[in-house]
């Protein structure tokens, strides 16, 4: 019966206004949520457990404030919640984050990992495949659907459409939105989550080789041209050719 791990990251609500103060983003006023694709990862992990048995551990890397997203995951139905962190860590680059998460997955004894295809803050999509490589596992990314038929059969984009790929052995699956509906926490789940204990563990991380220099608002776009009425489409078409040179 598989020991299933799902990665959940705490990120600003995607509706939040992102303010820059000086040369850093100021997140002091934002509301924090589970990164949207991680919700699909949680749902897929729970479906895997329902099909094959075992247990689901939600794992996050972050300071104590990240306990909230673990409790949210618990309310949805995961069995265990674990946070990996060490106050001595400085700024972590992707190498550090992946090393710590891979180490934590080893400590948990995870055999299959679900995570989001990209986190809402970084938009990177590096963590899932990077962890799989460190663990020496298979990985399938941007998965829109998973079937559990003995092993895992994942549907992922492929040239010209999508491919159904069978994965045997340990694997990391990064989840896209797809067609699955995510379940909501119920009252019992919320009560259980309140009392749930977060296991806090540490891990070794390599020194960072990428450091943040500055953060800034996106470059302002010069005001565009605005027209009234459908007939102006003819003029816009000419401008697309002669001014913008895009057609």
């Amino acid at each position: 019966m598989p020991n299933i791990v799902v990665l959940v990251k705490r990120v600003p609500d995607t509706n939040a206004r992102i303010v820059v103060n000086g040369d850093r983003v100021d997140l002091s006023a934002v509301k924090w949520v589970i990164s949207p694709y991680d919700e699909f990862a949680i749902e897929t992990a729970l479906q895997h457990k329902e099909a094959a048995g075992g247990s689901v551990t939600a794992l996050t890397l972050g300071p104590a404030a990240a306990d909230k997203v673990l409790k949210d995951a618990k309310a949805i139905g995961v069995d265990e919640i674990t946070r990996v962190w060490d106050d001595s860590w400085g700024e972590l680059d992707s190498n550090g984050i992946q090393s710590a998460l891979a180490d934590a997955i080893g400590q948990i004894g995870g055999e299959v990992v679900y995570c989001g295809k990209t986190a809402a803050d970084t938009g990177a999509g590096s963590t899932g495949p990077g962890i799989a490589e460190r663990l020496g596992w298979a990985s399938v990314s941007n998965v829109s659907d998973v079937a559990f038929d003995g092993g895992i059969i994942a549907t992922a984009p492929a040239e010209g459409g999508a491919a159904k790929v069978a994965v045997s052995g340990n694997a990391v699956i990064t989840c896209d939105k797809g067609s699955i509906k995510v379940r909501k926490p119920n009252v019992k789940g919320i009560m259980m989550a309140k009392r749930a204990q977060v296991n806090v563990i540490s891990a070794a991380v390599p020194a960072a080789s990428v450091t943040v220099v500055s953060q800034s608002p996106p470059p302002a776009k010069p005001a565009g041209k605005k027209y009234e009425g459908g007939d102006s489409a003819a003029e816009v078409a000419s401008l697309l050719r002669d001014e913008a040179n895009v057609i």
Binding site: S94, G123, T211
Partner: peptide
């Protein structure tokens, strides 16, 4: 370490969007 979705390069300083493009981030590679 990985830096994804780079949209500007200035020597070893790389810029990419964060928070779905609601901000830009410049990092230095060592």
């Amino acid at each position: 370490a990985v830096v994804q979705d780079v949209v500007a390069i200035n020597g070893s300083n790389l810029t990419s969007p964060i928070y779905s493009g609601k901000a830009m981030q410049t990092v230095a590679l060592s």
